[in-house]
Structure formats: structure tokens, C-alpha cells
Design a protein around this nucleic acid. Structure first.
Lengths: 198, 198
DNA sequence: AGTTCAAACGGACCGCGGTCCGATTACATT
DNA sequence: AATGTAATCGGACCGCGGTCCGTTTGAACT
């Protein structure tokens, strides 16, 4: 559980107190359990605090906001998925040609996002986008685009390809316009081919 | 102010009571005023109710939720912008070749979205995307793509082009990554060219 | 005008996210 | 072990979005 520090953190600020560390782990564990027991939408900050045996203030001090807490929870499950992208079997993982990997990435990302929809929603505050999660997908797509010898503004091109895979857009298409998933995936892959071929 | 019905509405449900209509107009007017006086973020539902001289319950009955109310407010100002797209001067309006119109559309959309950021944010609930606003931009882009003889899944292609222009993505790029606006616009236009040329 | 009733009203009420601050406690120093 | 102190703790508290329900009111009918 204690997998800090996410960023190397030039270890110099006065070390963290042991009770603080223990409490953070307890809160995160409680949140993790409650989320998969009742779904992210039904988990309140107070219920997490209670389940962790701490006060509400402690939860907020450690995770800043509801968004922050759920971002931490999300990170946890993202890790496994990132693993499969980085070192899993092809075509998602390494070993397949870059274009195939990119196409597989899209499909995988869509299904993953939709299957953890509630959690993604809870982890996406109206403010700051969850940085670690975001940056991994971005860097991966950038990497593949470069391997494909795509020219131009790679970071922004990657962002443009990722944007249609964001939860709100998928929600709209799947739950409001009732478009079938395969069609959505196919359209995204078509987009990718156009961008890459050019 | 009374510009109902947005959808023709096969006028048959028992007609709306006069006090209801009056109150809806009062609420919308109050919201409009408060928003541009204090900014959308600082306007509470209760303050709108008070300013309109009605109870809070009335505001919610008419507009469903905070998101709904602000969507109505947004519609108001969107109308003028849509006007300039439909019948304003080229290259945004008709008269210019479709590709130029599309490129101009992107730039215009980006600046508009960012300049009304607060309002867009308030009008975008965690649920349902504001339908009228969304569908106009979508239909317009679809229209231009067809004029450009683009083949493929036009509705989803349009959605993919619009996705990177959504507020959360722009916020990320402008306020967190500190990318200059012209670069963002240029990258989007590059994307469009790739899609169209292919 | 009087009667009726569905619809609209409005403000008390609820739950949740988030803040605050006095009490508590881990750790360093002597 | 005793002391100092800065960080942590936790729960009372706040404001806001949203709901509920007893009361009022517009309008159709007689």
C-alpha cells in the first residue's frame, strides 16, 4: 500500500509522522474497499473516514478533496492497466508494429474507461485533471506517433487523439446517442489512420 | 425572453399556467443578470431565486438543476455566436470555401469557449451534456465535412474533431501546461487538414 | 360568482463536500 | 525521563445543491 513517493521527491521536508502515514494508508485502503463494494458514486467522504477510523478532516488533509481521493484510488487500478500496455502481450503491449499497438490502445482504453466510468467521473474534479493518469496515456501515444514517423506537433496531436476517448464524450455517444461500441472504436481507429498516413 | 418552445412540442399537454411562465422568465432574467455581474461561479441557486423573487423550489422545478439553469443561460449567449457561424461574414460564415470555414470555426470556438469558461463549466453537469449547444456545433462540422467530400463515419468524425475543443482539454493545455493559444489552434487546424485530405 | 382541482409555489429540511480550530500526539533535544 | 513544539487529529460547523410537502392559486366548468 505504501508506494509513495509517486514523484521521487527530493527527500528533505521534515519527515512524515508515523501516525500520518498509517492514517493515509488506512484511508486509502478503506476507500478502495468501499468503492468496489458500493461503487464510487455511493461512497461519501464521511463514510471513508469512518471506515478508516479517522476524522473527516484527516481524509481531506491527506487527499485534498473528493476528487483527489478518488484519483488516488483510480491510480491504483490504472497501474495494472499501464502494466499491460507497457509490458503485456501484443498487440497492446510491445512486439506488434506501432500502428497496431495504437489501434489496440484505443480499443482497450475505451473499454477500460467505460467499465470504470463511475470511478473516472469521481476522480475528475471540475478542476485539475488527474495528472499521473493523464500523462501516461499521453506519453504512450506520443511515443507511438514518433515511432510511426508522424511529423508535426506530437504532444498536441496526441492530446487530440485522446480527447475523443474521454469519459464525457463516450458517455454521450454510448448512453445518450446509443451508438454501438464497435462503431465508436472503428471510427477512432479510422481517425488514427488518417492522422498517421498523412 | 419568452422564446419557448425550443422544440416545436406538439402543443397538447395542458397549457402552462401564466404564473409559471412569468416566473420562468423572471428566473432566467435574474440568472442572466447575476451571471454577468458576478460570474457564473459565484451565483448560487438561492441567490437567483431571491433575485427573481421566487422560492428556491420554483427555480429547481423550472430548470431541474444548477446545470440546467446555466445551460439555459448559456443557450442565450450561444445564440448570437451561432448566428455569426450561420450567417455572419466569411471565413466563419458562409461564402468562404468549406475548409477555410472549418479552420475558422476551430479558432472561433476555442476563443469563445475559453472566454466563457466559467459559464461552460457551470452548464456542464457531471451528467447529461447540454444537448442544444452540443448538437449545433456537431451538425455544423458534419455539414462542412460533407461539403469537403470526406468519406467515413461523419457524425463520429465530427465528434472526434470537436472533442479537443472541449473546455476541460483546453483548460489543461492553457492553464496547466501553459501552451500558447496560437499553437493549440494551429495543432487543431493541422489535425483537420490531415482528416480532410486523407 | 361559486366550486373544484390539478398545478405551481416556497421555504423548511436534508446530506454532502469542505473548513476551522482547540485538543492531542509524535518526535527531537536535553 | 522530562520538555518543547510543530504537525496531526477529529468533529463541530458552514454553505450549497437538491427534495419534500403543506399551502396557495390559476383557470375550466357550472
Amino acid at each position: 500500500m505504501t508506494d509513495r513517493p509517486l514523484l521521487p521527491l527530493a527527500g528533505q521536508g521534515p519527515r512524515e509522522r508515523s501516525d500520518a502515514a498509517r492514517n493515509r494508508d488506512a484511508v486509502l485502503a478503506a476507500a478502495l474497499r468501499l468503492v468496489d463494494e458500493h461503487g464510487a458514486g455511493a461512497v461519501t467522504m464521511e463514510s471513508v473516514a469512518e471506515a478508516a477510523g479517522v476524522g473527516k478532516g484527516t481524509v481531506f488533509r491527506r487527499f485534498e478533496s473528493r476528487t483527489g481521493l478518488f484519483a488516488a484510488v483510480l491510480d491504483h487500478s490504472e497501474a495494472r492497466w499501464q502494466e499491460s500496455v507497457i509490458s503485456g502481450p501484443p498487440p497492446l503491449g510491445p512486439g506488434a508494429p506501432p500502428l497496431e499497438r495504437l489501434l489496440a490502445f484505443g480499443e482497450s482504453r475505451v473499454t477500460r474507461t467505460l467499465s470504470h466510468a463511475e470511478l473516472f467521473q469521481a476522480a475528475t474534479g471540475s478542476h485539475r485533471r488527474a495528472y499521473p493518469v493523464w500523462s501516461f496515456t499521453s506519453l504512450h501515444v506520443q511515443h507511438l506517433l514518433r515511432e510511426l514517423d508522424v511529423t508535426g506537433d506530437i504532444p498536441l496531436l496526441a492530446a487530440a487523439l485522446l480527447a475523443p476517448l474521454e469519459l464525457p464524450i463516450l458517455i454521450q455517444q454510448v448512453h445518450i446517442e446509443h451508438l454501438p461500441l464497435p462503431r465508436i472504436v472503428a471510427a477512432w481507429q479510422d481517425l488514427v489512420r488518417r492522422v498517421v498516413i498523412a
